[in-house]
Design a protein around this nucleic acid. Structure first.
Length: 930
RNA sequence: GCGCUCGUGGCCCAACUGGCAGAGGCACACGGUUCAGGACCGUGACGGUGAGGGUUCGAAUCCCUCCGAGCGUACCA
């Protein structure tokens, strides 16, 4: 703890107490004056008198937080402080900066807390939001607070529901690869003769089958432990829920889906237009998992097995087929008895195909995903007893079932080409199946060859390289009606309904047909009703044979509702599912632009200004979006999808929501365990001789996330109390590059405090509080340093390199500290450059320098190019790679002169030998080779 | 297993993208100031860049192999 003796600390020293006083005062000033309000081009937030009205815009956003009950720890605001420093800089550099903050406030924790305590989630959420706002305000984050909202605000989720209706009322037209209003599809249907023969309900069903939001009875991820279904993206690879880690089962249930798969191509291709980290693009590409190839039909008795393959060129090498155990054709193709010549290994030891299939299915179903993975190298399967015909050469090939073929991908069936596929090779070895190479492999190649090469053993394809052979085979398949070129995706449609309370209600009701009806815009928002019991019915986490029951369904007087939807008042039944937590974060970047617009989601003029494309081909979108890499797939994929639907329907001019993405690193912390494995409070641990002690007890150190359970949480509030917000901000930005994770070290924070104290002391007399600044000009040498620092800081700020920018500011401060007089010429730019990092102190010093008001719109210093030219350059002179001498010359000296001077400087080393080569690198060094 | 990213003084990190390894901070040592501690002012020590090889006049930076760490992914046909 910092203890300051009252009698000895000078009254105007920059202590935590003084910092706290200054910070509160400036936070109040900014709030009262609306300092960080950004003007819109039109509407309620337009302000032609604003200093940045009509200026070039910059739209910077953080991934907004879920306001948890635990509040913030020092890791949370890292990105927020980063964007704050960046936007404060760009505002001073002349941009009209939009930097808003909101809250993603629907979600499970508030609901679970409500279940435990009976407190309404809205109450908990509001309290948490207030706490977050308070904590963020204390850090001096310069948000336009008029634009803040929570996704739980009815005025906000009214538009979330509105977008749902847009999606519901659209269909995807493959001929133009975009969404169109469903009314245009209905017109098409009405023009067909069959339409007249359909009943109204049949017509509705047909239309509903094309909507981008639709209901489907399909296998979904049912999580009894949570009492809800989950999206594929919310299920971990080992088949458990991402939240809560409960088992997840595949169950066929009727649920809302969004047709995100229709956007697969655009979601892949438009990644090229984005300035995103490559790993994130890669993760999205992998998740979408587009692969091009062909569908090929294999006749099997009276049935036809369609497979998907990326290697149609290897069809002549297909020596057997494999269906997923769940494939629908398995039972119909399997004969009653094993055919003659069936090998023993194929039967699994069973008497008949039916027995073998039943047993194998049971065995596959009993295995957990983990076991499957662990056994991954040993291929299992069983013969169905059936044969199929290879369509290219009529070969009779056996059909197996095996769990290495997944029901959910492609057609759930493959043609097996062991010569060119490692998995097929492994299976063929176990089941003694023939292997035919159809691509010429290198001499030393053992096992499957997946590389490039000329086709062999493939009749008319022989000699063709892979790419050419693929194209030729697809053409042949199409000509002969045996298949066609095809593209498949790993991406599945997005499961959009949840059996929870704390989410957006669907703006959907059902009539007596049981078919969904969209509520008109005028009935939005559909407000979440109060209920007594917030919990969905949960079950034994292991009991797959259970049915979801939504909290809203118990609210009978809400579920049954009388409405006039055009044909008089009638009773309807409300949808009782709610939307997933992603819904609110799918479009929030748009609402910041026009947060109070009651007529529109966002006024087109405001959207075009803040997010519209800047030049042809530009995607538009938020200029800089900062957040954790953990949202690489879920949030970023869903919001791209919604944005594209809104784009297709003409509601926005940008076709991507986030132009540039930046993943900030994480602040992690050490945790300490005693010999029983219990965590001890990290702040009580001391280090002695490389070992760690809690009291007298030795403890072991580990490294990881900050959290209550690890007893290593440090909060921004503690840092503000001990050092002040400005010191905390400077420390977080100085400790390393924004995108690198690093350990928190409280004892190092004092370095940032000393820096700010030194800067303060340059301007303020610690005894009297008066300014020490003089109008005397800066000395020539320090002036050079000043301008070098200005140039460097500007560059660093623009590239988000705050750690090096701060290092340069410290360097400048250290240069000024020993000088006999403190020159305004240096101090003013120093204060301005410090403002993005330590805004409160900078404002205070700006006032001490005789200015009034805020420096938020003051011009960021610009270096004088004349001052960036060095007086002289010292060239190190290398001889055979080693520095042997130096020459100092004026910057204008031409190369020949530098060379001559350099040779003279190392004449002794050269000792008369003739240099083989002399390299003069201008401004850097001279290298002599002898 | 595969893919990506990264290894620089005791620690957190710089190094103009091939040009004298060190900007900044923490910790440390010494001196000044101080009743003392802290703070402050000044001075200083510390590594040749994970290991090995290659390209080059010159490598922390480019290439190859290996070691280690982090992240992602896992039979996707």
């Amino acid at each position: 703890m910092v203890k300051m003796s009252e009698t000895e600390t000078p009254p105007f020293r920059y202590t935590a107490a003084l910092a706290g006083e200054i910070e509160l005062r400036w936070q109040a000033y900014w709030a009262e004056n609306g300092t960080f309000q950004a003007p819109n081009p039109v509407g309620e937030l337009a302000d032609p008198a604003h200093p940045r009205a009509g200026a070039p815009k910059l739209h910077v956003q953080d991934m907004f937080p879920y306001p948890s009950g635990a509040g913030l720890h020092v890791g949370h605001p890292l990105g927020y402080i980063g964007t704050d420093c960046y936007t404060r800089f760009q505002r001073m550099a002349g941009f009209n900066v939009l930097h808003p903050m909101g809250f993603d406030a629907f979600g499970l924790p508030a609901e679970q807390y409500a279940v435990q305590t009976g407190t309404h989630p809205a109450v908990t959420t509001a309290a948490n939001v207030e706490r977050y706002k308070h904590q963020l305000r204390r850090l001096g984050l310069a948000y336009d607070e008029r634009r803040s909202f929570s996704t739980t605000d009815p005025e906000y989720y009214r538009w979330t529901q509105w977008i749902f209706l847009q999606v519901f009322n659209s269909w995807f037209d493959p001929s133009v690869q975009k969404a169109r209003p469903i009314s245009e599809l209905i017109e098409k249907f009405e023009a067909t003769p069959e339409w007249a023969d359909l009943t109204p309900a049949q017509r509705r069903e047909q239309i509903d089958g094309h909507r981008l939001a639709y209901m489907s009875e399909a296998p979904v991820n049912w999580c009894p432990g949570l009492g809800t279904v989950l999206a594929n993206e919310e299920v971990t690879p080992d088949g458990r829920s991402e939240r809560g880690n409960f088992p997840v089962f595949k169950r066929s249930l009727k649920q809302w889906m969004m047709r995100i798969t229709t956007y697969g191509d655009r979601l892949v291709e438009d990644l090229d237009s984005l300035d995103w980290p490559e790993p994130v693009k890669l993760m999205q590409r992998n998740w979408i998992g587009r692969s091009r190839g062909a569908h090929v039909d294999f006749p099997a008795g009276s049935d036809k097995i369609t497979v998907f393959t990326t290697r149609p060129d290897t069809l002549f090498g297909a020596t057997y087929m494999v269906l997923a155990p769940e494939h629908e054709l398995v039972d119909s193709i399997a004969p009653g008895a094993w055919p003659n010549g069936t090998k023993d290994v194929w039967t699994g030891g069973y008497e008949s195909p039916a027995e073998a299939i039943t047993a194998y299915r049971a065995q596959a179903a009993a295995k957990t995903e983990e076991e499957r993975t662990a056994d991954g190298k040993v291929k299992t399967g069983v013969f169905t007893g059936a044969f199929a015909e290879n369509p290219v050469n009529g070969a009779r090939i056996p059909v197996f079932i095996a769990d290495y073929v997944l029901a959910g991908y492609g057609t759930g069936a493959i043609m097996a080409v062991p010569g060119q596929d490692e998995r097929d090779w492994a299976f063929a070895e176990v089941f003694q199946l023939p292997i035919i190479r159809t691509v010429e492999a290198p001499e030393d190649c053992e096992g499957a060859f997946t590389g490039d090469g000329p086709a062999i053993n493939s009749e008319w394809l022989d000699g063709k390289e892979v790419v050419e052979a693929k194209a030729a085979m697809i053409a042949w398949l199409e000509e002969n009606g045996k298949g066609s070129g095809a593209t498949t995706y790993r991406l599945r449609d997005w499961l959009f309904s949840r059996q929870r309370y704390w989410g957006e209600p669907f703006p959907i009701v059902y009539d007596e047909t049981g078919l969904p009806i969209a509520l008109p815009d005028s009935m939005l928002p559909v407000e979440l009703p109060d209920v007594d019991d917030f919990s969905p019915r949960t079950f034994d986490p292991e009991d797959a044979d259970t049915e979801p029951e939504t909290p809203l369904s118990r609210k009978k007087d809400w579920v049954q509702v009388e409405l006039d939807l055009g044909d008089g008042p009638k009773m309807y039944t409300r949808e009782t599912n709610t939307m997933p937590q992603w819904a609110g974060s799918c479009w929030y970047e748009l609402r910041y632009l026009d947060p109070h617009n009651a007529e529109k989601l966002v006024d087109p003029a405001n959207e075009a200004y803040w997010m519209g494309p800047r030049q042809p081909g530009d995607s538009g979108g938020v200029d800089l979006y900062v957040g954790g890499v953990e949202h690489a797939v879920l949030h970023l994929l869903y919001s791209r999808f919604w944005h594209k639907v809104l784009f297709d329907l003409g509601h926005v001019s940008s076709f991507e929501p986030f132009k540039k993405l930046f993943n900030q690193g994480y602040i992690q912390a050490y945790a300490y365990q005693d010999d029983r494995g219990f965590y001890v409070p990290a702040e009580e641990v001391v280090e002695r001789d490389g070992e760690y002690f809690h009291g007298s007890q030795k403890v072991t150190r580990s490294y990881g996330k900050m959290g209550k359970s690890l007893k290593n949480v440090v909060t921004p509030d503690e840092m503000c109390d001990q050092y002040g917000a400005d010191t905390f901000r400077v420390y977080e930005m100085a400790m390393g590059p924004l995108d690198v994770s690093r350990p928190w070290e409280t004892r190092a924070v004092v370095g940032s405090q000393r820096f700010l104290q030194r800067t303060w002391r340059l301007v303020v007399d610690e005894e009297t509080g008066a300014s020490r600044v003089s109008d005397a000009p800066l000395d020539v040498k320090s002036r050079k340093v000043l301008h070098k620092v200005i140039a460097g800081v500007r560059e660093d700020m623009a590239e988000l390199r705050f750690n090096t920018a701060i290092a340069k500011l410290i360097e400048l401060t250290n240069t000024l500290t020993p000088l006999p007089t403190v020159s305004r010429e240096a101090i003013e730019p120093l204060v301005l450059m410090l403002a993005p990092f330590a805004p409160h102190m900078a404002e205070e010093l700006w006032g001490k320098l005789g200015n009034s008001g805020t420096l938020a719109y003051a011009d960021f210093p610009v270096a004088d190019p004349a001052q960036l030219v060095a007086d002289s350059i010292t060239y190190p002179v290398q001889v055979n790679g080693k520095v042997r001498g130096r020459v100092e010359v004026s910057p204008e000296t031409d190369e020949a002169e530098v060379r001559a001077a350099a040779l003279e400087a190392v004449a002794e080393v050269i000792a008369g030998r003739e240099p083989k080569k002399v390299i003069v690198v201008k401004g850097r060094l001279v290298s002599v080779v002898i």
